[in-house]
Amino acid sequence: MITYRDARPDDAEALSAMAQQSFIETFGPLYAPVDLDAFLDMAMSPAAYARQLADPAYRIHLALIEGQPVGFAKIGGNYFEGFDPAAPCLHQLYVLSAHHGDGVGKRLMDWVLATAQGLGDELYLSVYIDNHRARRFYDRLGFVKVGDYIFKVGNHEDHDVVMRLTL
């Protein structure tokens, strides 16, 4: 049975492990090991998640099976230049591949939309240009492309699409 709750400071280690596993499952083959390791150490370490869990600018919601994360969504400030800096941004929506199709992404996105409505009139996100599964998911929800973004993984530059949803 999948349960959902807001993340707590003591979730940093498990959140980091799940995020890294999901990122590697989805994108790992795209990167040289040195770039992937640098990115994971910087952006997805237990310390990085501990800082975010302690920062009121971030909100993280977990999907759990037997107390272990199988998915999560993270909302924070908008970091895309040229767009409303006060608008919330979906920073991550990750689900382990074994749970794709279980409704976890939809349920987490319901939380994202409900939470974002209390924070602004628009919600932004970026998605890797070749992540067709995610792009179809966001398209169905009404997100529209409004720009482009370079997402760095180590020294590797990915081309992302910036999307916006009017809430």
Score class of each variant (00 low, 15 high):
Ala19Phe: 01
Gly103Phe: 13
Gly147Ala: 01
Gly147Pro: 00
Ala43Lys: 05
Leu96Ser: 03
Gly82Val: 09
Tyr94Pro: 02
Cys89Asp: 06
Asp110Met: 10
Arg135Met: 10
Ile2Gly: 02
Glu122Ala: 12
Pro46Thr: 02
Tyr128Asn: 10
Glu122Asn: 11
Thr115Gly: 03
Phe137Leu: 12
Thr3Asp: 11
Tyr58Cys: 04
Gly147Thr: 00
Ala47Arg: 14
His132Val: 14
Gly76Ile: 03
Asp11Cys: 11
Asp11Ala: 10
Pro29Leu: 09
Arg133Leu: 13
Gln117Gly: 11
Thr115Leu: 10
Tyr58Val: 01
Leu30Arg: 15
Asp84Cys: 12
Thr26Phe: 09
Met42Trp: 10
Tyr4Cys: 04
Arg133Glu: 15
Arg164Ser: 07
Gly76Val: 06
Gly77Pro: 08
Leu62Thr: 03
Asn155Gln: 15
Leu108Trp: 03
Asp84Met: 07
Phe137Ala: 11
Leu15Glu: 00
Val34Cys: 07
His159Gln: 10
Arg59Ala: 06
Val161Phe: 04
Arg133Asn: 15
Val162Trp: 00
Ala12Met: 07
Ala43Ser: 14
Ala114Phe: 07
Gly147Phe: 00
Ala86Cys: 13
Asn131Thr: 06
Leu167Tyr: 03
Gly147Ser: 02
Leu93Lys: 04
Tyr79Ser: 14
Gly76Lys: 03
Ser126Cys: 12
Leu167Ala: 04
Leu108Tyr: 05
Asp6Glu: 14
Asp10Glu: 15
Gln52Phe: 04
Gln21His: 12
Ala98Val: 10
Gly28Ile: 05
Gln92Met: 13
Ala17Gln: 13
Leu108Glu: 00
Val112Leu: 04
Pro46Asn: 01
Leu64Gln: 13
Asp130His: 13
Leu53His: 02
Ser22Asp: 08
Val144Ser: 12
Ala50Asn: 08
Ala50Gln: 07
Ala63Thr: 05
Leu165Lys: 09
Asp6Trp: 11
Pro56His: 04
Arg107Asn: 14
Cys89Phe: 09
Ala57Gln: 14
Pro33Thr: 08
Tyr31Arg: 09
Gly154Gln: 05
Ser45Phe: 02
Gly118Asp: 10
Ile2Glu: 08
His91Met: 14
His100Gly: 11
Phe83Ala: 06
Phe137Lys: 02
Asp6Arg: 12
Val144Gly: 14
Asp10Ile: 11
Asn155Pro: 05
Ser126Arg: 01
Phe143His: 01
Gln21Gly: 15
Pro88Trp: 01
His91Asn: 15
Val34Lys: 12
Lys152Val: 05
Ala17Cys: 14
Glu157Thr: 03
Ser45Leu: 04
Thr166Trp: 02
Gly154Lys: 00
Phe143Val: 06
Asp160Phe: 10
Gly76Asn: 11
Asp158Gly: 06
Arg136Phe: 10
Val153His: 00
Val162Gln: 01
Val95Leu: 11
Gly103Cys: 13
Ser126Leu: 02
Asp10Val: 12
Ala98Phe: 07
Leu165Trp: 03
Gln68Asn: 12
Pro69Ser: 08
Thr26Ala: 13
Val153Ser: 01
Ala50Ser: 15
Phe151Arg: 03
Gly77Asp: 05
Val146Gly: 01
Ala134Cys: 12
Leu30Trp: 11
Thr166Asn: 14
Trp111Arg: 10
